[in-house]
Write a protein that binds this DNA or RNA. Sequence first.
DNA 1: AACGCGACCTGCGAGC
DNA 2: TGCTCGCAGGTCGCGT
Length: 322
Amino acid sequence: MPELPEVEVVRRGLVSWVRGRTIDFVDVLDARSIRRHALGPGDFIGNLEGAVVADVVRRGKFLWMPLLDSSPGAPERVGGSPHPSVALMAHLGMSGQLLMQDPDVPDEKHLKVRLRLSARDGMPEQLRFVDQRIFGGLFVTSLVPTEDGGPGGLAESPLPLIAEEAAHIARDPLDPNFSFDLFYRRLRKRKTGLKRALLDQGLVSGIGNIYADEALWRARLHYARPTDTLRRSEAERVLQSAREVMVDALAAGGTSFDSLYVNVNGASGYFDRSLNAYGREGEPCARCAAAGIHATIRREQFMNRSSHTCPVCQPRPRNGRW
DNA sequence: AACGCGACCTGCGAGC
DNA sequence: TGCTCGCAGGTCGCGT
């Protein structure tokens, strides 16, 4: 569910609560939520207990916390300075939440993993992973060198390392180091539709079904537009649209339709009110209405999910163009 | 190599 | 009341 703005809201919320704290106890309530940790719950817990959370960083929708071993003489102390080599990875999937909670707060219905952190004045004790659909999960992974300078995201980590499972993910459009030239070159080589390309995290990260539909609407482009016919100006337009809609969503605390997406303090974002296409089936297209034209947002199945378009200002491409 | 589909899950609202 | 169906923000792996 959560796309870049929602994950970034979570990252920002998390960092001040957890940075520098030690993970004292770990409780895995549902092993399915750590199924990507191949060595199982015992190994997962063993890796985390006693570790210090060094930071919270993100690449696309992948979020991770580099860990320092708090024991003396730990192997990752390179050159006398702490240097994380492993991280706690989190992906929220469709319904995952990371919540900071006091110990007296009753367990959430879909609580999957509980981390008890070292005491800090005025800070909640627990970091909880809650996930209804279990498409998300936690696992411990290695930090590996990255060619392109760091994990990316909006708050660049000084560490030129990236979590192994996020290494194949491209930078996101809000990342200062995002390369439009590289994106456009790779886009033109694809033989696919524009929305499928926008959702391909290896090409550009952070965009999901909501912001893909919104970016396409803002750019007045159809989801099935063949990528190999896309002009540079059109690619720039859709990228810039994605940037604008995600910046606006970030400022609004993300998009929430229900209690499934909340920040680390349990609060919903309110960007759903600003959506122009996603979830607006049957409603008038705001841009057409402003021009005195009557047009209705349409929902169609594409890639086994819903796509929302205005049939008037986002016409279906013909002969590879429009 | 790249594309595109099915699988992985639970829960909710609509319709009968 | 209770059933079935369709729908939901994502990613991965496999067959073509």
